[in-house]
Design a protein around this nucleic acid. Structure first.
Length: 920
RNA sequence: GGGAACAUAGCUCAGCUGGGAGAGCGGCGCCCUUACAAGGCGUAGGUCACAGGUUCGAUCCCUGUUGUUCCCACCA
């Protein structure tokens, strides 16, 4: 092993090695239980960002954990064609060569997109590999693969046959730049500074003009009426009368509708059914004419009179000038309001009336709500066992889901794009529609053979909504489908809860006999920068995950993401943290080197004390280490028993964290164990233990076993470094040479703590406390780390004498003492002796030449003060009659014991103070 | 307008349904001790946003206030 941890030297080598050995493969036929995750397919236009890194990490941790735990594990990867996004990227690319999609024609353009896809579509796949992701790449799917496309058609046609998909003329959101319809979700409300213009509408019969406020004066071209509230006394007499539309002079009626808010503006509303959602509804109620005045490119059409041909902003400007000139503009005020913009290009989305395909999702939504309601009442384990319930994690999201689902509206599924699944509907020259799974050549109504397929494609989310089952070969009843549907968990970002998760649940249940597509939904947080701001190119605060990997290694990055991915919390990515966890990897690396040296399998750099080369065949008598440990651990040295108990505790913590997707808890437990226990204490203890021949082989065995288990336990989080170290481990019974850690068995928690383990934990706790007290004494008194004092001890708790004495050698070693012997009366009472008390023992330290008396006086005085405060606090607690009456007995006894101990302590401190003062 | 989450050490966060607050980074001091200076040891630093309530006891449960963030919604 190299001396320094250098992730670049092994990451890509190991990934290739796993891949060659088929470590990522899931089996269609297997006796093992199944565990499956459908990967949220990244867009083919995407470059790996931190959101991807987070989901790859989380899903890979789960996948690797389940794989090692004996499951036939499928993590199914794929990519999404991402209709608008991809089409825009390719169009931009072509524009550089002076090419336009409209001029090329559909066929040639699509050929270019496919070409682009072949070239760039898998970049993100390679990037996911850099992170160590372990999906079954042999099953990689693309939303426009033939199988999936076939399934999409099947779904569309089936829904059409069921009357759930229909073609209709309705008001929809339209992007004049992308020139396509958008669903409600693809329009993002954005705060914009605008104006409120107050316009005059003059009644035809004369009289006072109506003043109407609008933020969009250009829409007056399409006004079909003016609406007032039926109870509004100001306008009552005008209802049924007509007013003259400014500029155009068309006469429009004044109607009464209770939708109008009397308090808002002037209380009169211009109604433009062709270009406003609410006005469209009002228009329906009053049978108003729908006048569309803008065309698909956002220009005024032939209904706009002299304004025809102007763009919307141009028309607005001109209209305002003209209104002003005619004295019809009463006043203008600033007005901040929210407008819907196209999610992709950020241009203001126009409500327009248009022919589109819609899906009635309400009936599907009801069942999807039902599944979540069931899941809410069940535990995670119960949900895992059935296929009709879904559990949300964090639970709070389920409310957001209900809110949307309960108010769901028909989904506009057609898009006026070329890149995507073309709608399987054909029109004959008589205008009949034929919807068909195969390319229609004959009209179903009139048998005409002059057929033309609908130009439109489906919303990208339509096909991704089918992802969890179409990727398994559905509608064919494939083995993969039988084995892996429903999937275990859907892990993705909350930002696509409605776009994707909700639709998968609806579609999944509808097309799979009510079986949910996944049993758990785990919504992870957003990755933000360290100040909590969204990362964006314009802010310039984007951290490229590939740069992080390059600088700190994939493992350190993964570990950072895991430990920061507390449920539902934002992940504030800070490079300081990544650096800290790289240090953790380095620690693990070096601890492993130490172990290998002590096993004699790596040339020791230590002068002298060569240890025998560990022969595990001999040490364990041919048994696998785990068996040898569980058979013999009760009789091991307390230090070995203790670290095994700590390991058990860690296994339990890691596992329970993983079960509930609390990756932060699992990784924190690993960190604490590896660094805080194994490295800081066990390895230090072992240096002493290995000096005693009777403990050498036992300690070598335990040291090796614990390292191996720790590597297994950490592997899902930090796969590369653990595999690399694992491959350096010496031969041992039960482990095939060259076996991959990735496919090793995940540690199982030990049944329960035995008395022997309890005893060892207690003993080691006493030793650690003694060492810490002695170190603190040295630190506070500025005793040089190089000094090796000779000190003595006296056991204060006779019952624990043996336990304490067994630890004397390690205390001596870790507290850097020349000697630690039983006090024989020589140091006690000597005015130059310092005393350190630690629970069960008292230490006597000759101070002469080591310490300055003033410093020590200060220290003791300070400790006395805090102890006195503690006594005060405890006394007052015990003095309360209500506490004595109502608090549990154990607690009261504990408090009383504590008080006694504190009082003894104060007496000792007074004693020490007296001595020190004498010394002065 | 409706809903949700959050507010704990200088910074980033733990604290898993109540019994005297923890970690990492940063700070300070000492040490290149034979796995690791990407290290070791020690140490400082908190009225757990604020105000009430429940309780013997509240960072934790309830109510309100303030602040931050997010989602949903048709106010022209």
């Amino acid at each position: 092993m190299q001396k320094a941890f250098d992730p670049e030297s092994f990451e890509s080598r190991l990934y290739g090695w796993w891949s060659e050995r088929g470590c990522f493969r899931a089996e269609d036929e297997s006796r093992k239980p199944s565990f499956s995750i459908a990967m949220p397919p990244p867009n083919i236009t995407g470059a790996l960002h931190n959101g991807h890194a987070l989901f790859v990490t989380i899903e890979d941790v789960l996948t690797r954990w389940k794989r090692m735990s004996g499951f036939n594990t499928l993590w199914l990867p794929g990519t999404d064609h991402a209709g608008i996004a991809t089409q825009m990227v390719v169009e931009r690319e072509l524009a550089k060569q002076g090419l336009k999609r409209q001029e090329m024609g559909r066929k040639a353009f699509l050929a270019k997109v496919w070409e682009w896809k072949e070239k760039h579509g898998n970049i993100i796949v390679d990037q996911m590999k850099r992170l160590g992701g372990s999906p079954d790449w042999s099953r990689l799917q693309f939303t426009m693969d033939p199988g999936l496309s076939k399934a999409v058609r099947h779904v569309f046609v089936t829904l059409f046959e069921q009357g759930l998909i229909y073609r209709g003329t309705r008001i929809i959101n339209w992007c004049t730049r992308c020139q396509t319809a958008l669903s409600d979700l693809e329009v993002t409300p954005t705060d914009r500074k605008g104006h409120f213009w107050h316009l005059k509408y003059v009644p035809t019969g004369g009289g006072e003009a109506l003043v109407i406020a609008t933020t969009r004066p250009e829409t007056l071209l399409g006004d079909a009426a003016v609406a007032v509230h039926p109870e509004d006394d100001r306008y009552k007499k005008l209802i049924g009368k007509k007013v003259k539309l400014p500029l155009l002079g068309r006469e429009i009626p004044v109607i009464a509708d209770s939708y109008v808010d009397r308090e808002f503006g002037s209380g009169a509303l211009k109604v433009t059914p062709g270009h406003d959602f609410n006005d469209y509804d009002i228009g329906k109620r009053h049978n108003l004419e729908i006048i569309s005045v803008f065309d698909k490119t956002g220009k005024v059409n032939e209904h706009g009179g002299v304004y025809q041909g102007l763009s919307i902003p141009e028309a607005r400007e001109k209209i305002l000038i003209d209104l002003e000139a005619q004295g019809l503009l009463v006043r203008t005020e600033d007005h901040a309001h929210s407008v819907g913009v196209c999610q992709r290009c950020e241009r203001v989305a126009e409500p327009m009336v248009s022919d589109q395909w819609f899906m009635n999702v309400k009936p599907l939504a009801e069942k999807a709500i039902e599944a979540a309601r069931k899941g809410e009442k069940l535990t995670l384990e119960e949900v895992d066992k059935r296929d009709d319930a879904i559990k949300f994690l964090p639970e709070g999201w389920v409310n957001t889901y209900y809110q949307w689902m309960e108010n769901i509206r028909d989904w506009c599924v057609s898009r006026q794009l070329w890149w995507g699944h073309q709608i399987p509907a054909w029109y004959c020259h008589n205008g009949h529609i034929t919807v068909s799974r195969d390319d229609a050549t004959k009209c179903a109504t009139c048998s005409s053979t002059k057929m033309r397929q609908d130009d439109d494609v489906l919303d990208t989310w339509f096909s991704s909504g089918l992802w969890p089952f179409t990727t398994l070969g559905w509608p064919e009843k494939t083995k993969a489908y039988e084995r892996f549907y429903p999937t275990a968990v859907m892990e993705t970002g909350f930002d696509i809860l409605f776009f994707w998760v909700a639709r998968m649940i609806m579609m999944g249940m509808h097309f799979n006999d009510g079986k949910v597509p996944f049993k758990r939904v785990y919504l992870h947080a957003m990755v933000r920068d360290e100040k909590g701001q969204k990362m964006s190119k314009t802010k310039g605060n984007v951290i490229d995950p590939l740069d992080i990997i390059k600088e700190y290694g994939a493992d350190a990055f993964r570990f950072t993401l895991s430990i920061m991915a507390g449920q539902g919390r934002d992940v504030k990515l800070s490079l300081d943290r990544v650096e800290g966890y790289k240090a953790f990897c380095n620690k693990l690396w070096n601890a492993s080197r130490y172990v290998l040296m002590r096993l004699g399998h790596v040339a020791s750099e230590l002068p002298g004390d060569p240890l025998p080369k560990a022969d595990f065949q001999k040490i364990t008598g041919g048994k696998p280490l785990a068996e040898w440990v569980s058979a013999g651990r009760a009789k091991f040295h307390p230090i070995n028993r203790w670290i095994l108990a700590e390991l058990d505790r860690t296994i339990a913590a890691v596992e329970s964290g993983l079960e509930e997707f609390r990756l932060n808890e699992s990784s924190q437990a690993l960190y604490d164990f590896v660094w805080g226990q194994y490295c800081d204490w066990y390895i230090e203890f072992s240096k002493e233990l290995l000096q005693h021949s009777e403990f050498i082989s036992e300690t070598q065995g335990v040291m090796m076993h614990v390292l191996e288990q720790a590597l297994k336990l950490s592997h899902p989080f930090i796969p590369f470094i653990t595999e690399e170290i694992y491959q350096h481990l010496p031969e041992r019974p039960g482990v095939e040479k060259g076996a991959a850690l990735m496919l090793a068995t995940f540690p199982k928690r030990n049944a329960r703590t035995t008395p022997e383990a309890e005893q060892a934990i207690e003993m080691v706790a006493v030793w650690k406390a003694s060492i810490e007290k002695l170190r603190a004494f040295r630190g506070e008194n500025n005793i040089s780390p190089k000094a090796r004092p000779k000190i003595t001890y006296e056991v204060s708790d006779r019952g624990k004498a043996d336990a304490f004495i067994a630890g004397v050698p390690v205390i001596r070693a870790l507290a850097q003492l020349e000697s630690l012997e039983a006090e024989t009366g020589y140091l006690r009472g000597n005015p130059t002796t310092g005393e350190v008390l630690s629970g069960t023992a008292k230490f006597f330290i000759p101070l002469k030449g080591l310490v300055d008396v003033d410093g020590e006086l200060k220290r003791v005085e300070k400790e006395k003060q805090t102890t006195l405060a503690d006594i005060e606090f405890t006394k007052s607690k015990l003095a309360k009659p209500t506490f004595i009456e109502k608090a549990p007995k154990e607690l009261i006894d504990k408090e009383k014991d504590k008080l006694r101990a504190l009082e003894t302590r104060v007496a000792d401190l007074d004693h020490a103070l007296g001595r020190l003062r004498q010394l002065k």
